[in-house]
C-alpha cells in the first residue's frame, strides 16, 4: 500500500507538486500520467524519500517515510528516470551489490538474477561492464536491480523508455504478475496506450495538481464519446 496525502513541493518559486493526495492499494497497478514537467518524477522522488516534501506525508505499507525512512525504503523498488548508474561495475556486480544492500540471501538472489537475466536476455552481458551496455540494456539492468529484492511496492519512473518490445512485454507481464500477488505498482508514463491497457486506475496530473484519479471506466463515463488521447489533451488543456 502506498499513500501520499497533502504533499506540496516547491523549487524556488515553482510549485512542482501542489497539494497532491492519492492511494495505491495492494493488488493494483496505477498509471501516473501527465505531460512533461507535470511533476511526476518529483512526486516519485518524494515517495521514495529522495526529496523531502514541504508539507504532507508519505506512507508505505504502514511506515511513515519521515518517521521510519529505512523500513519504508526497504519495501520499495524504485527505477529512476535515468539508467546511467554505476557504469564502472559489471552487470553481475551491480546486481549483487544491490542484492547485498537489500539483504537478499544467496540462493534467493541466484534464482532471481537467473530469472531476470533470462527474461530480459541479459545472460551474455552480465560479465561485462555496464558502460558497454546500450541504453536499453542499462534500463533492463536497472529494472532487474530494482526488483531483485522482490519489493512489495514498485515505483517505476518511465520504466518502458528504451526497452525493446520483448523486454517491454516482459516488464508489463511482471507488473501484472506482481499486482496479482497482492502487491502494488505505481508507474509513470506518457505513452497513453500503455496506461490504458495495463492500469487498474490512473492518476492524471498537470502543474503538480491531480486532475483525475479513478478507473478507466470512470474516466470514459466522464467524457462520453472521446477516446483516451482526446480526453487527456482536453484535460491538460493542450488541445
Amino acid at each position: 500500500m502506498l499513500e501520499i496525502s497533502g504533499v506540496t513541493k516547491t523549487f524556488n518559486d515553482l510549485k512542482a507538486v501542489d497539494d497532491l493526495s492519492f492511494k495505491v492499494n495492494d493488488g493494483e497497478i496505477v498509471g501516473f500520467v501527465g505531460p512533461n514537467g507535470a511533476g511526476k518524477t518529483t512526486t516519485m522522488k518524494i515517495l521514495t524519500g529522495i526529496l523531502k516534501p514541504d508539507c504532507g506525508t508519505v506512507n508505505v505499507n504502514g511506515f511513515d517515510m519521515a518517521k521510519s525512512p529505512l523500513e519504508a525504503k526497504e519495501i520499495i523498488g524504485y527505477i529512476a528516470d535515468s539508467p546511467d548508474m554505476f557504469l564502472r561495475l559489471k552487470g553481475i556486480e551491480f546486481l549483487n551489490f544491490i542484492a547485498d544492500i537489500y539483504k537478499v540471501p544467496t540462493d534467493v538472489r541466484r534464482e532471481r538474477i537467473e530469472t531476470f537475466a533470462t527474461r530480459f536476455g541479459l545472460i551474455d552481458a552480465l560479465d561485462l561492464p555496464m558502460q558497454s551496455y546500450s541504453h536499453g540494456m542499462r534500463q533492463k539492468a536497472m529494472v532487474a536491480a530494482a526488483l531483485v529484492h522482490n519489493p512489495p511496492v514498485w515505483i517505476l519512473d518511465e520504466p518502458l523508455i528504451g526497452l525493446d518490445p520483448k523486454s517491454a512485454y516482459e516488464l508489463k507481464n511482471m507488473m501484472r504478475e506482481h499486482a496479482a500477488k497482492g502487491n502494488c505498482v505505481l508507474f509513470s508514463t506518457h505513452v497513453l496506450e500503455v496506461a490504458e491497457k495495463l492500469c487498474d486506475k490512473i492518476i492524471i496530473i498537470n502543474h503538480g495538481k491531480d486532475i483525475f484519479y479513478g478507473t478507466m471506466d470512470e474516466l470514459s463515463a466522464k467524457y462520453p464519446g472521446l477516446d483516451f488521447e482526446q480526453i487527456f489533451l482536453e484535460m491538460t488543456g493542450e488541445k
Binding site: F97, I101, K103, V104, P105
Partner: peptide, 29 residues
C-alpha cells in the same frame, strides 16, 4: 563462452553485509 561462465558467475554471487558491499563498491569506483 559466456553462457558457460553463467554458472560460474552464480557461484560467486554470495551474500555479504550491506556495509561490505557498499565498501567494495566505493573501492571499485
Amino acid at each position: 563462452a559466456k553462457a558457460r561462465s553463467f554458472s560460474a558467475l552464480m557461484e560467486k554471487s554470495i551474500q555479504t553485509t550491506p556495509f561490505k558491499a557498499y565498501f567494495k563498491k566505493e573501492l571499485m569506483i
